[in-house]
Design a binder for these strands. Structure first.
Length: 219
DNA sequence: GATAGGATGCTCT
DNA sequence: GAGCATCCTATCC
């Protein structure tokens, strides 16, 4: 790992999150379907000390890569239909990760558009964690990919120019039910590709468990 | 423009 | 079996 990635291996996952803003993530390098995204929005998750982290309850088959060395890709399946991307951070043995929430497609726009045919504006191609994964064409097969070196599946490159601290805003994380008051979401101010903030809204499960009335047909 | 609600299946308890 | 680190569409201003 080069010295430019030292922040990813440090103890402070919020420093790692900030250092990822402006980085360029490329998938399919060298192929006709290469797509490059400039990261504009991320969230930090601190592992065992963070109730909102997937690693809070310890090591499982799903989050195993989070406990390894930094710079690897943690991919998980969410809400029955979406893939989300994280960069593993912190020293080996520390289960910290940064969720990649949004980015700007800077190369391979045509490929990204074929993967996301319903979007209207280019700024929406990778606006939101599941959209970002879809625009990049990543799913479970990319789990554990090492990002900090050359690679065809996915690779990360530092910002073309350093991102000044004044260009970074922070606020509460999106959609998490635990530790929602922790301001560990970071984004580039005034960037049109940053996803809209939505506080966590618990779903009403009672409609699915209603004891009375005729049985619902399958959905 | 804002907002409400449905879709969908993996993961862990 | 409950709970999601979400997105899309319809509907109403």
């Amino acid at each position: 790992m080069g010295s430019e990635w030292a922040a990813l291996a440090g103890d402070d996952v919020t420093v790692a999150a900030r250092s990822l803003l402006g980085c360029r993530l490329t998938t399919g390098a060298g192929t006709a379907d290469a797509v490059t995204v400039r990261l504009t929005e991320v969230e930090a998750y601190a592992g065992p000390v963070d109730p909102a982290s997937h690693a809070y309850r310890g090591r499982t088959p799903r989050n195993e890569v989070m406990f390894g060395p930094p710079g690897h890709l943690y991919v998980y399946f969410s809400y029955g239909m979406h893939w989300c991307l994280n960069v593993v951070c912190g020293p080996d043995g520390t289960a910290a990760a940064v969720l990649l929430r949004a980015g700007e497609v800077v190369a391979g726009v045509d490929t990204a558009r074929t993967r996301r045919p319903t979007v209207r504006r280019d700024a929406d191609l990778a606006r939101g964690p599941a959209r970002l994964a879809q625009a990049l064409g990543l799913d479970r097969s990319a789990y554990g990919t090492y990002l900090l070196g050359p690679g065809t599946v996915a690779s990360l490159a530092p910002p073309a120019r350093p991102v000044p601290p004044t260009a970074i805003a922070r606020g509460p994380r999106v959609g998490v039910s635990a530790a929602a008051d922790v301001a560990w979401r970071f984004w580039l101010v005034d960037d049109p590709t940053v996803s809209p903030y939505r506080p966590h809204a618990p779903r009403d499960r009672q409609r699915r468990a209603a004891p009375q009335g005729p049985a619902r047909p399958g959905r």
